[in-house]
């Protein structure tokens, strides 16, 4: 009976995939360009930019750029630094921001609205404008570590982590998503005498898979990709440098574009991997939140 319908369905499916693929091209081409270029010697790379060859691994293909890039800069060290700073900051950020957002959405207390407005207002402050005051501040901050009391946070991991642990965007993200959670669930638990901490841990957080994944992805991008100005001014030793500062190693007077592309390809790997892993968590957690509504 359904030859026509199934044909139709097949056509529709094909059309859907076609649109998906076409849109993919728009988003993929600079990255293909980056990866393909990382395999080419500089003169060919630049000559190819004006034609379709820019996207094809043709001509003189080799891994030389990668070998040279590793010789030029301690790439492993930079990536390790960035991954460490990112993981610690993101973990702390999820915990602290969700806790605060929980309090803003589900609890009522004096000063709540004022505090929330202040937090949202800080969303507007571009980091560039507070960098110098913050530098002066952290250079005088005390710290109690294994070696006892020390003054000044420069040239450490903590100076790259602690100031970034809480940001308005993450708080705001949690607030907006918590607003959609069913309040009845919380009130019911409250009636049964559950403590706020228990409700946060056992009810709200398990329901928040999608927003946790979203927040973690977005925060990790900021921490991994956009940390340039701050580490530049607070980290003066190579041992603590993150990947974006490391990019500067490749911008000599005569820019070695092939090595730049190789470096960029390499440092993109952890973020993409992180995204893929979280995406899985993201999908499964959505499946488990069928209770909503």
């Amino acid at each position: 009976m359904a030859t026509v319908t199934s044909d139709n369905r097949g056509l529709r499916l094909a059309a859907r995939y076609l649109s998906l693929v076409l849109v993919s091209l728009i988003f993929l081409f600079p990255l293909v360009f980056m990866v393909v270029s990382s395999l080419k010697p500089d003169h060919q790379l630049l000559a190819d930019t004006s034609s379709i060859r820019a996207f094809l691994p043709v001509g003189d293909i080799s891994l030389d750029n990668y070998v040279n890039a590793f010789e030029r800069a301690p790439i492993g060290r930079f990536m390790l630094n960035s991954v460490f700073v990112t993981v610690v900051t993101v973990t702390a950020s999820i915990a602290l921001c969700s806790l605060a957002a929980f309090s803003f959405v589900f609890l009522e207390w004096t000063g709540r609205n004022v505090l929330l407005s202040v937090i949202v207002a800080t969303l507007i402050i571009p980091f560039e404008t507070i960098a110098v005051p913050l530098l002066l501040f952290v250079s005088k901050l005390p710290w109690i570590g294994l070696e006892g009391l020390e003054i000044g946070w420069l040239n450490t991991y903590r100076v790259q982590i602690i100031p970034w642990m809480v940001d308005a965007l993450t708080v705001f993200l949690f607030v907006q998503f918590f607003k959609d959670l069913p309040r009845e669930l919380i009130e019911a638990a409250r009636v049964e005498g559950a403590s706020w901490m228990l409700i946060y841990r056992k009810i709200v957080m398990p329901l928040s898979g999608p927003v946790i994944a979203t927040a973690a992805i977005l925060k990790s991008l900021v921490m991994y990709n956009n940390q340039y100005l701050w580490p530049l001014i607070v980290v003066q030793d190579e041992a603590h440098r993150p990947v974006m500062v490391g990019l500067g190693y490749f911008f000599q007077l005569q820019i070695a574009w092939g090595e730049v592309m190789a470096y960029l390809t390499l440092i993109s790997v952890p973020v993409i991997a992180f995204y893929l892993v979280l995406q899985r968590a993201f999908i499964s957690s959505i499946a488990s939140t069928g209770v909503k509504g």
Partner: peptide, 21 residues
């Protein structure tokens, strides 16, 4: 010796001077 990327070297020095470092 501690080496810095040239493009941001001056900014690093100014920052260090501000922080007394």
């Amino acid at each position: 010796v501690e080496s810095f990327p040239q493009q941001s070297y001056n900014d690093s020095v100014v920052a260090a001077a501000l922080a007394g470092n």
